[in-house]
Write a protein that binds this DNA or RNA. Sequence first.
DNA 1: CGCCTATTTGACTCGTCTCAAATAATGTGG
DNA 2: CCACATTATTTGAGACGAGTCAAATAGGCG
Lengths: 216, 216
Amino acid sequence: MSQTWRTGILPNLSQSDRQQVENLQQPEKVARNQAIFSEGQVPKGVFLIVSGKVKIFATGDEGKQQIIHIAKTGELIGFRAMFSEEQYRVSAIALEDGAIGFIGKPEFTQFLDGNKAVRNAVIRELAKELGERAMYVTLLAQKTVRERLAIALMRLSEVYADEPINLTREDLANYVGTATETLIRLLKDFRKEGLIEVQTRKLRILDAGGLVRIAG
Amino acid sequence: MSQTWRTGILPNLSQSDRQQVENLQQPEKVARNQAIFSEGQVPKGVFLIVSGKVKIFATGDEGKQQIIHIAKTGELIGFRAMFSEEQYRVSAIALEDGAIGFIGKPEFTQFLDGNKAVRNAVIRELAKELGERAMYVTLLAQKTVRERLAIALMRLSEVYADEPINLTREDLANYVGTATETLIRLLKDFRKEGLIEVQTRKLRILDAGGLVRIAG
DNA sequence: CGCCTATTTGACTCGTCTCAAATAATGTGG
DNA sequence: CCACATTATTTGAGACGAGTCAAATAGGCG
């Protein structure tokens, strides 16, 4: 089980193609906690995250969120449901104040039809994510919460680059797939073991190697 | 969380397109337990299951299989890794004697390039599976083993249509994502509750409604 | 028929969840 | 900008689901 976690469609395009996609939208401000789209709605296009981060999650039967992905600036989101011609199966909510642009389905598909490179990038991206999700399933089914937390922190440190990871305990728990209380206790362990540094909601990795060792 | 589980690319094509795909391959016999492809290999094309069933699984760190999907006659498998231009992240092994055809990557991609309907079907299928897998992740993270077993049996009853479900206890456990012993105990419960009928390895659902109720 | 593998059962342990309550942080209206 | 209300975080105690290990039994294949 190697762990290469998603990349997104745009970073794999040429400068020119990327620019063309970006020209299809007009950024609009979004506030923290604002919903971008919700489970059950019918997709009318895709969204480009111009700035900020967005959590993508499925809602379980008791309303518990399972966070599938934290999308960051530059990512295109919502294309999955659009291509499958289904309703959204997940919801997207802004984690921070930011800006998001919308690209309507007609414009986007027309653009795709006329551009083989982008079309292939889309197929490749869908296929990649599908493969990653197979690993994710295995991980959830076979790893302990402690191991999953270590993996989650490593993934998140890529999303947050050099900033500290900044999520509520509940969101972090829902990302790992555990109860909030369990997450808090494990976080305390990790801190005591010198793996991470925590200041309220800001979390920094001190010993990446140690996390890798725990992740197995 | 609704549960519409995968369909495959071919059933969504026109008769003529489907025929053209089928003409690209030559069926060859495969024996039970024969590997079709394995994690880490480089994909050279896709496989069409002409007859028989195939288990698709990821291997966890301790060698434990996580069965992602049981593919049946008529399904195209292995296209995920081919499109993502990565190695296989999962393995495929025949569950029964059967026949499988191979379609090389050049032939297949050339065919796709020249056929917009099929190309779109591929995108749609990838997108659909990706959505289903999000549900799967949520299910694994939030449901008890008992609930997951109920869901697994319902999914499998579609794969096996009117035949009885026929899997080793270990495969069934790996499909549900649990230990073999736990699976066996739950199977006994289900039998005592009149939900299923079991004769050695053959398993039949007696009370689908009851399973739905357990699944939640 | 007999070996090898699969299945089943029992006993035990441990990780993780739940519920409840205390404390801290955050945001909001005046 | 402060005080209050609300929400988030932390801790404790207890219960229970599910895993592991070991051993017995049954089934299937050569």
